[in-house]
Design a protein around this nucleic acid. Structure first.
Lengths: 204, 204, 204, 204
DNA sequence: TATGAATGAGATTTCATTCAT
DNA sequence: GATGAATGAAATCTCATTCAT
């Protein structure tokens, strides 16, 4: 069965509606009925296009990631000095997180709760890890961070970036005395990540 | 009014049962009826001891945290060189996470779903941040990491630790080629954290 | 969105079923499950048509009142001598009460329990008071009952009518020696009400 | 088993507590646990003294009625002219209702909902009906209201009094334009009741 | 006489999904 | 391709009452 133009439009309507509803209510509270209402369609119609609520959410996340990866990879591709590219990438990630907070909340919620979804989301995360791993390997080529496992380190650094934003942007931050600005946040993350990679001798 | 020995035993039975059920099914699927069954009591009885499902979960989380904090703070208190204490603390955190994975999954899930619970959990997290902040300040007293905001840096490093464990222990890790051992994980985290703090000049 | 014929039929089935169940068990004991069973539908289906149990009851009460008001106002509209119209209205009220006793019990019960419902019911009562007030004012135009506050008197007389029926029809009556017939009841009420209004000088 | 002094005190404590709770929360919301708390006793203890929640409520109502009957019968016993005694009795009833509104609400609620309780309450009501019936018979001895059934008329008049107070004191009154004072209320009721009885010829 | 403990028996509401048309 | 209708299966919490001590 070839999808007709009408069919494709309906499918897209569900996707758009779902995005809006998840942004508004969070993943857990995104009822199918809300999504259908928002799309101006019936719930029954939904099942002509998606297998389940989760299937639809997974598509949303994929879209979201495509945008994020393009954004973050850009500075490294532009031939900036690596250290500056890193700072820029952190800043872009941070801003993306800020701009799309509600969507992220929905996605993260979903990944916490739904194991299928979690798998997809980890796959997506991998793109970012690869970008960072490339950064580490480049530094190692210049003699920095000898012996560090590039992918694993990238995974850890990516975790820092991701979870820091989760705590400070998606939530109220940790209970410490500070009024966080973008500059301070980006500087701190950048300083930590840079020094974590640009060293030549073991800490001991 | 006054709880008897029997009452206290029942209360504890519910706590233990809840732990087992959450471990088995996750927080979202931890039905009160399951907990009651597991405890060998009636659901009605439950409400003699707890106000709600959430209240019980909060207690579980508090127990869990008490143990974790005691564990992690220990190495720093023992007068080890800071750099070694850090490695030891990371190792203990990692092991605790491994040993109690299912419980953590439950707690994190709960913090996604229940805003009250989330608040408590963030408060709990703060303890770890404070421990790390002390570590940073000590290093700064010796001239390291000048200008770094100790609490904020601690928050970021804590995020790395926590989220790395979440990804690699509670889940399948990132999609990279590696069979992670405790030693490699701890070493990598330790190396990153140590260098992130023990430096004297700006990265640029 | 648009209800089909089948939908309308289902909705009506719930209304009818609810009426029967309330009649049988009283409002407090009218379980939704009973209503659904009686309607031959599932409880979940109920919520496609009504927001809550109370919403359904409110509809029942409104139907009930519409019928009652039409009935009672009729004799006054037909140009009978006021005094005869009064008697006729009393008789119709009395019969309506008899015919629909169980429904009234449900409604009154509901008005005890649910404050929203109570408000609606008091509003409904007002219609009857207005009809009686008109009766009093007409009498006053002919010189009767000088000085009597027409609405307040109507409120009192309406109370007599309503509560007398509640006591004698909906319940077993007062503990006095009498086997009440409709004629005696209507005569007594009519005699009392008529004399309460058709007088020219103060009682003292 | 003779009740001990302590036992009697406990019993009374439950009665007092119940009164306060019903006044505060209404009958339907008077949970046994509240009553026990208020009494400073355990719920289990309650069952040493009463068969059920309803049994206790019935006692409350009886107390309440004893006071009311004494009050209302008084004017008739004092040898006032009947017509004046009537007015006085109405006034006392009205005031009693005002003073003890929350208690009445509880009792009436109970009588609407609980059939056993309703029976008791009707029995109680009978006292008032008898008082009024005596009044009617006295008037008839002087030639008034020939042919009127004294008990039944008394029942109707009693209904008027009771329900009028219910509507205007226990609730917001009917939706008519008036700011009701005690004097106006009593006057209106008295005028209606007096004329309803003091007449010599049929209304027709 | 007193009470902590325990429970049976509900009751309402939610929502993803299926089906007939 | 679209949708109104229908539902199964839960899930949480309440409360009067009983019982062992």
């Amino acid at each position: 069965m070839k999808p007709t133009a009408k069919g494709r439009a309906t499918r897209q309507a569900f996707l758009d509606a779902a995005r809006r509803v998840v942004v508004r209510n969070g993943y857990l509270n995104a009822r199918l009925s809300d999504i259908a209402d928002e799309a101006g369609k019936s719930m029954a119609s939904f099942y002509n296009y998606f297998d389940s609520k989760e299937a639809l959410l997974a598509e949303l996340a994929k879209d979201f990631d495509a945008e994020l990866q393009a954004l973050v990879a850009e500075p490294f591709r532009q031939g900036l000095p690596a250290i500056d590219a890193l700072r820029e990438a952190i800043r872009l990630f941070y801003r993306h997180y800020q701009r799309r907070t509600p969507e992220i909340v929905g996605i993260v919620q979903a990944s916490m709760i739904d194991e299928n979804f979690a798998k997809e989301w980890r796959q997506i995360r991998t793109n970012g890890v690869h970008t960072l791993a490339r950064f580490v390997r480049n530094a190692q080529r210049d003699g920095w961070a000898p012996g560090l496992h590039p992918e694993l380190a990238a995974s850890a650094l990516s975790s820092m970036l991701e979870h820091f934003c989760w705590v400070w942007i998606a939530h109220d931050g940790d209970a410490i005395e500070i009024e966080l600005s973008e500059d301070v946040a980006v500087d701190t993350l950048w300083t930590l990540m840079a020094h974590a990679v640009y060293w030549r001798t073991d800490p001991a």
